[in-house]
Design a protein around this nucleic acid. Sequence first.
DNA 1: AATCCACAGGAAGCCCGGGAAC
DNA 2: GTTCCCGGGCTTCCTGTGGATT
Length: 411
Amino acid sequence: MDLQTSINGIFDNILEREQIFVNKEVLRHSYTPLELPHRKIEIHKLAFILAPALKNETPSNILIYGKSGTGKTIVSKFICKELEKTGKKKKKPIQTIYLNCEITDTKYRVLANLAKHFKKEIPFTGWPTDKVYASFLKAVDNKKRSIVILLDEIDKLVQKDEGDILYNLTRINDDLKKARISIIGISNNLKFTDYLDARVQSSLGGEDIVFSPYNAQQLEDILKQRSEIAFQQGVVGEFVIPLCAALAARDHGDARKALDLLRVSGELAEREGSDKITEEHVRKANDKIESDTVLEASRTLPTQSKLVLYTIICLDERGGRTITTGEVYDTYKKLCKYARIDSLTQRRVSDLILELDMLGILSSKVVSKGRYGRTKEIKLDINQVQTKILLSNALKTRNISNFKLPQRKLH
DNA sequence: AATCCACAGGAAGCCCGGGAAC
DNA sequence: GTTCCCGGGCTTCCTGTGGATT
């Protein structure tokens, strides 16, 4: 009976306890606030460059640089929205398209995705790329209009050697009779133009805008602005926002990180049933975010990468010398044999280690040991105990937790 | 100064699954 | 069905290299 009554009101109880947040969505990165603090100059510059679109002229292509969490995406999206709005008011058809090149990461997909915005369905794969291009061209050019294409994380395309799509896109106006296309490229990498074709470089980089990282004070302003909408009055402790700002500023002024910190701190406080967010919550949130991202990354790793990571953790536990590629490969091969899984070549494993590095799970550094060759020195950046348990669970059909490291060879 | 280790990491090409077109 | 494309994972083969040792 007692149990019944307490369960009956379970959601009421939870809702009653929600004394921290008013609107949590405000703290997510996808949320666009009405005002973007400390980005006035950039907004004006962008607007100035894009304004010709409203006078039936083609705006210059633009390149936007800046590290992650400096507001590049949000500012560009904001401006595009405004541009469309004004275009509608003035009866000038302007369409803006947002594409993230980390997801849409090949020329085929970029073109297919663009074509989709003009009601042209193109299969995931199958067509020759030039056919997709032609089909996109036809769909766009069926009436007079201005189009602004926002290519986020454009450096990913170049990295994957798909940069020639940029050449096509920057020259597309030559093939168009009615429509006009401008491109805004957004890049995290300041030096990515170095890898571009000189012709693309000149036409894409007509205008450059650099977003510098926020400093701690600016981050504080951003957090203050959002926290006023996000939280109940008086729940945010005095030093909470400065601490979030300081922690994020240390991480190259990443506003996303600052917002995450604040949100997770709030969630932790809420879960504890506390009615105030304290600095302690922020510290806990900082740890939680770090371990969550790493664990999540490890969980979604393909089997072979899991095996490689497991090998490295085992070697690291044994301690002693620094870990090198050759050592990892030897042990990995034994582990594979033990688990009855086909092993990959050293070349491939070397790439897998690099991938783990890029995920922030480990850091590897190429060092030369003189007579004893050149190799990568590998250092783990994660909570090994948790990750090891997670990995052996994920691979439990192979029973790898019983795997014993072979005796260390004497050098 | 020459040698040589133990790899790094580029290039090319294979194989496979997914899909379209004929 | 066959034949064509695309992309991703992988192998094979390869050339390159920093610096301790000879």
